[in-house]
Design a binder for these strands. Sequence first.
DNA 1: AAAAATATTGAACATTGTTCGATAATAAGT
DNA 2: ACTTATTATCGAACAATGTTCAATATTTTT
Lengths: 194, 194
Amino acid sequence: MGVREESNERRRGDILDAAERIVSEKGIGHLNIRDVARASGCSTGTIYTHFADLDALALHVNARTLSRLAGALDTIEREDGGSGIAGQLCAMAYAYMDFAAGHYHAWSALFEHRMSRPLPDWHREDHFRLFRRIAGKLQMLHPGLPDEAAFLQARTLYAAIHGIVSLGIADRLGRLPDETLREQIRAVVLKLVS
Amino acid sequence: MGVREESNERRRGDILDAAERIVSEKGIGHLNIRDVARASGCSTGTIYTHFADLDALALHVNARTLSRLAGALDTIEREDGGSGIAGQLCAMAYAYMDFAAGHYHAWSALFEHRMSRPLPDWHREDHFRLFRRIAGKLQMLHPGLPDEAAFLQARTLYAAIHGIVSLGIADRLGRLPDETLREQIRAVVLKLVS
DNA sequence: AAAAATATTGAACATTGTTCGATAATAAGT
DNA sequence: ACTTATTATCGAACAATGTTCAATATTTTT
């Protein structure tokens, strides 16, 4: 790789790093071109040679967040606590909740981000990978469940848990105590995967 | 009421009407002071004598939307289809889905709106009234269920359904066919209220 | 009718996303 | 090695938008 490409990659990484830091510290609402430029040591114009626009930059920050989230769920998945598949799904739901609480700004950026236009395929795929992992677990619980049905149920389970976590953790309607939220999640997961 | 108050109320109503139209036709992302001023026939400055800022205006639009949503659920609640309480809860969830699909922009404005700061009490109360209605139904299904538990479960049920509808209807990850979504919702409601 | 209170206006300011011509740095060609 | 072409960077400028405020018009009070 030439000097050119290397320098480009470093610059792009620096910009993304700066944007990521801003989002996770202050929320996506405080992400703006000038602050990113200042924090990554370049001009506003340069950002536009590495990202199409601010939206694209935010999208890539979200992709990183989603990847960290997938990593957190991976960890749970590997350490089988011996509580069976349903218990593992509960643990994954807890991990989702903990991630949302522990990386609140980054997590909420995943959803605060403009609902307006559809996400690019590569980012949808990031989400779908998550669904597929859950679908696999559901198939372990219900042998013979067709792929498509498993995927659909996984999506529904994920959506339900997301809704509960979202409403419980976001300040919009007042936060629920962690323990209460955990109980609700456990009850819902167990009922939905039964 | 003097001429002054009347004129004030009319003006405030006109502004809110204009804002509501813009939100429901183009989405909250296209709500801006100048367009509202033009559409309601006044200057930008005047808007600020009737609403604290654009955020407050959006909030009042959302309050109207929530009130229409409550009305839609009310209708379902009154026309007992004879399918029992659980069936009624399903019907309410369908109504929620239909409202979201039928008034997509207005509905998504309820949630696209800045998660950042907590909602004012009067608007939280609008949501809580909804929860209480559902809680009442849950208590009919489970006589003896304490108010607090019923409220909590109602909130969870609402959140879960919202998550499912949200992920299914928003274009973000691709829409689900209405029938598929309806089946998922039915299954979830029945499992969660059991 | 005069004075006080209130509402409205629209120009002005601040912030922010984005573009673009000028300039600098690198790569390719000879 | 020198020239030319390509690419990256800068930062000033533009457009859109939220918000304020002094000036003006309107309504109420005295």
